[in-house]
Amino acid sequence: MTTSVIAKGIVPRISRGVGGRSRVALAVGGTLILAWAVIALFWPHLAPYDPVHQDPLHRFAPPGPGHWLGTDQFGRDTLSRMLAGARPVLQVAPLATALGTLAGTVVGLVAGTFGGLVDEVVMRVLDAIVVFPTIIAAVLFVALSGRSVTAVVLVIAASFTTIVARSVRAATLVEREKAYVEAARLRGERSWSLMLREILPNVTTTVLVEATSRFGDAIFAAATLSFLGLGQPPGSPEWGASVSDNRTWLQIAPWTVLAPALAIASLVVATALVADALRSRWEAP
């Protein structure tokens, strides 16, 4: 009966501390993501040059007035390529996240609600898939099936499905044991009704937290696959591929590598900050 004063909410210290920090993180991260989204949509209007236009006379130009971020081995404008590179990542990540979260939620909810044999089978399969980190699974599938946006999206989504399904299943199991679900069973509610009307509304926080965290992971994975040469065809301005292509010239033209690298970093960090801020907000009591 006598809980600590903090638990009683007399001292809203935790929520205030995180809240103050999370507001800044949310603003900074959100602005960055928004900026990259705008760039992904409108880069043809923003880029000073055509990102694939080769200019043999200005190879390896250092950053300067003509080319703010210099040029690469073919004389292509680094800034323009960096801006153009935002689009492929921001195509893959939201799609893969949405697909993976949706599938994972369905699988986790069903396994958690129905339990028994359904749950057992689903968990065994998930256990086997989880053995492979996203990247290793992706290498296996994408390399073999041939590179395509669809393959990248599908393999990332599949990997997320297992992660999301495990979290949602765990949350569902917690809810399923609660008295309000038992009360519904006492009234004779059907399992589907239990799942959708009683349990689902109470695992949405978990789903949202998963979705925001997975979005960052999706960008991470897409960029890495592109770096490994499993993204779009050679020559595309994709960030990961640019880092990979230009690393041979690291000694003479580090800007060609740093620009896309920092672009990736800024987007993933922004996503992580937003995800963290939202998580602490949603999970606050």
Partner: peptide, 8 residues
Amino acid sequence: FGATPEFV
């Protein structure tokens, strides 16, 4: 740091 891909 944790959010940034290792190759970056």
